[in-house]
Amino acid sequence: MEAVWGVFPVLVFLAIWEIVGRLHLFPGQSFFPTFSAVLREFYHLTANGVLGKNFLSSLTRVLIGLSSGSIAGIFMGVLMGWRHIIDKAFNPIISLFYPIPALGWLPLLMLWIGINELLPITIIFICSFFPVVYNTATGIRSVDRRYIQAAETLGASNMRILFKVVIPLALPNIFTGLRLEAGMSWRVLIAAEMVAIPTGIGALLMQAESLVRVDIIIVCLIVLSGMCFIFEKVFALAERRLAGRWSAHA
């Protein structure tokens, strides 16, 4: 029953969209295509492979950039959270770079790296690295000292305490960072592709804009929205599997 209530508003929205589109309330029908016209274009773009090709380009960039940024971020965050001296050494640098929006790096990276595949991957790496470092370090630091003391008195080595107690207990915090960045990486990628990269969903958006193809623009936005949603859900699911049984009670 709850699922019905969740779907119902979406159906109403789509119905209103279709009706408003068909009533020609806006000058020039192509500026406000109906939902069915967008669906037709979605099918068309999928069938001729344009959407698939651009989508795969974007997906590859996100997967490489997000995974490398997250792994590096977790590694750095664990070190900073676990060892005070490393935190002391790197915290000023992280604090300096963390507030810079990922897209702010774009002009500099265009000059340093050039316009190639590495550019969007680097942007996504930066976009995910800093928040994941921050959340991971916070998560590691906030593990209750009593658990560490308990593990110490039970004879655990430092490494065992880190891998068997501290990191598992920091998982909810780590996943918070990952979940947020999973969606954010798509948003940043699209922006980068719109500005500087000739392939990908962002580039397709810009081409559609230049051809005044509102239906294609909407298709791209729907794909973007879907991917942000799916990526965030994947991480939420992983979090639930790894920490769901106990995280609310830690």
Partner: peptide, 30 residues
């Protein structure tokens, strides 16, 4: 870890991410 001391802390500090068996086995595995 090398003092050979077993502690029951006031707040207990049972590891929330481990089940009862794993909590008890922790020191032995370590």
């Amino acid at each position: 870890r090398k003092r050979g001391v077993g502690c029951l802390f006031q707040g207990l500090a049972l590891f929330p991410h481990l089940d009862v068996f794993s909590n008890i086995a922790f020191g032995l595995q370590a």
